[in-house]
Structures are given as C-alpha cells and as structure tokens.
Computed example of a mutant assay.
Amino acid sequence: MDATGGIDGVLDVRDLRYFRAVAEERNITRAAERLGIAQPPLSRAIRQLERRLGVSLLDRSTRQVTPTAAGLVLLEEAVRVLDAVSAAAHRTRRAALAAPVVVVTAKPGVATDLLRRTARAYAAEPGAARVEILVSGYGEQGGLVRDGRADVALLGTGEDDHGLDLEPLTSEPRVAALPAGHPLADRSVLSCRDLAGLPFPHCPVLPPHADDYWSGRDVRDEAVAAPRPVVRDSSQLLEAVALGQAVALIPASLAERNRRDDIAYRPVRDAGPYTLAIAWTSGSRSPAIARFVRTAIEVASHERTSRAAGPPSHAAEPSSRVAGPVASDQG
C-alpha cells in the first residue's frame, strides 16, 4: 500500500467501497444514495478506476449496470478486503477496553433464545468475559462476524458462512406453510415434488444456493416459479403465505411459534432439516471466543439429553470437525 492509502498506486479503500456499492445495487443512483454522495462524482470515480486498472468493470448496455467477469472478481475481493478493514478497526477498539467483551449475534426467535441461555451459562464461568448480545436481521449474521461487529453468531442453514468456522448445535425438520384452504392442506404428509411449480418467497439477502434450499429445489429439478414475493424476515414470509401469494418451507419451531387460522402447516418427508450452527472467524485465536463456543455446544448437548425422554429432540450431535477456537483455549 502506498503513502496515499492506495494498493500499488491503483486501488484504495474508497475505490473498493464505491465499486462494491455500484456492483451490489446494480444502479448508480441507488449506489450514490447508499454512499451518501452525488451521482456524477461516483460515476467519474468508477470510470477512473477502470482506466487505472485497464479493464471494464461494468456492463452499461442495459438499464441497470452489471459487473463484467473482471468486475465480479473485483467485487469478491472488495468484499473480503473491506470486511477485513472493518474487522481490524472493530477488534482493535474492543481490545483497548478495560475488560474483555464478546459480542454475539443472532436473528430473533429460536436462535436468540439459545444464545441467551448460552450467555447465561457462559457468564457463570470464572473469569468469563462480558457478553453483549446483538439482535440482527435475517441473513446479516455472517457479515457481522466477518466485518468485526460481532465475534460469534448463530447461523441457520442456507445463510452465508464463507470465511467462518462452524459447529452445528441443533437440527429440526421443516414443514410446508400453506394458505388455509390450499388443496395441499387436505393431505397429511407432503413431498418437495408436491410443491413443484408453486411460488416461494424470495429473500434477496441470502446467497443463491439458499434459494434452492428454502424452496425445496435442492431435491428436485425445477424452474423458478414467478411472480415471487420478496421477503426480508419471517413475519413478512408468513404474511405472504397467509395472503395466498406463496407457499414456504420453514423450520418446525417457526410453525410452532406461529399457529394461526389462515396458515396450514404440513410435514414434508424429503425436505432437508434446518440446522442452527455457531460460527466464528476462521483462524480465531481468542480464548474468550473459544470458551463461548464450547459453552454453546455444551448447552445444546445438555438440552438434547434433558429432552430425550420427552418429545423427539432435534439437537444435532457435535461434528467430528471441532475447528478453530473450540479445540483449545489457545487455538
């Protein structure tokens, strides 16, 4: 990096922030609004970046701008670098605190319930760090850990986990959520193939492979049905189902928490399970994070054992790959 903050005199952090916003928004105006700057200087900055790199980064032939092959590579690298820069700042500030802090995050519901129980068990340990719980939105958890705003997250199946180490904690079946009165609601058990051709909600913050998982297309070959309502959390998803705009495959616990007259829930025999895992930065050396992760595994294991004599438990056995800080307080 040169004295002006550029990398080999070509890139700087501002360049990467600007390009990431344009590439993700696919629209200069929306990207400028996201960045809080005017559109003309943003357009000039992107063109100057293309000239310095000697490549075309965006295809401007349609009403929206789309990344070229080179642009997709730069977007991937930009996300990684910007997350690393953000993480360095957040973790450096936390390291300067008088007492150590572990920031943990999850979305509302079963995940935050388990996180609170884990935090209580962890706090009871001698010398435990202070825990801050950050309740986050759908699909945000992985990014919060990667950019350093959180140290540990609970992630559900399908959420973006790149750059993170994971350990599964719980697993449960998924059920179909159908509008009340839907023809499939007359059947006691369904398969993913029964749902073929029906519209499923689309959540834009999740990676593409998650779309297949949440619509059951991971076990069947089928084109995407249209139109599809856009949802950003479970409340929106359930309302889309109740209004007859879509059907959905959801965790059984979500159905149990949201029994209502306008939605019918039915088992789906071949739908993959929903797994909740604890995630942390790959290669973490923090003893405090190691202890928190180990506590989460112990809490989940204890709850599985305590429920063994009652209704079927859906807690997952810890995997044989105990990575990162779980293996040792020093590693």
Results as ranks from 00 to 15, higher is better:
Ala296Asp: 03
Ile278Glu: 01
Pro311Asp: 03
Ala308Gly: 09
Ala279Ile: 04
Ala288Thr: 09
Leu276Thr: 03
Pro311Ile: 08
Ile289Ala: 04
Thr281Cys: 02
Pro311Lys: 08
Arg291Ser: 10
Gly283Thr: 01
Ala308Thr: 00
Ala290Leu: 08
Ala290Thr: 00
Pro311Ala: 11
Arg294Phe: 06
Trp280Thr: 12
Ala279Phe: 11
Pro287Asn: 09
Ser284Asn: 15
Ala277Asp: 03
Ser301Phe: 00
Arg294Asp: 00
Thr305Phe: 12
Ala290Trp: 00
Pro312Ser: 12
Ile278Arg: 11
Ile297Trp: 05
Pro287Arg: 05
Leu276Cys: 00
Arg285Thr: 13
Arg294Lys: 06
Ala300Trp: 09
Ser282Pro: 06
Gly310Thr: 04
Arg307His: 13
Ser301His: 13
Thr281Gln: 11
Ser284Asp: 15
Glu298Asp: 14
Arg285Trp: 09
Trp280Glu: 05
Thr305Gly: 06
Val299Leu: 03
Ser286Trp: 12
Val293Thr: 12
Ser306Tyr: 12
Gly310Gln: 05
Ser301Thr: 15
Ala308Ser: 14
His302Gly: 02
Arg307Gln: 15
Ser286Gln: 07
His302Arg: 12
Ala290Asn: 07
Arg291Leu: 03
Ser301Gly: 15
Thr281Val: 10
Thr295Cys: 13
Ser306Arg: 15
Ala309Lys: 01
Ala277His: 11
Pro311Thr: 07
Val293His: 04
Arg307Leu: 13
Ala288Arg: 15
Phe292Gln: 08
Gly283Trp: 09
Ser306Cys: 12
His302Asn: 01
Arg294Glu: 01
Ser282Phe: 11
Ala296His: 02
Phe292Cys: 05
Thr295Glu: 07
Ser282Tyr: 09
Glu303Leu: 12
His302Ala: 05
Pro311Cys: 02
Arg307Lys: 14
Leu276Ser: 10
Glu298Thr: 15
Ala296Ser: 07
Thr295Lys: 04
Ser284Met: 11
Ala309Tyr: 03
Arg291Met: 07
Pro312Asp: 11
Ser284Glu: 12
Ser282Ala: 15
Arg291Cys: 02
Glu303Ser: 10
Pro287Trp: 00
Ala300Phe: 09
Arg294Val: 08
Ala308Pro: 03
Gly310Asn: 02
Ile278Val: 15
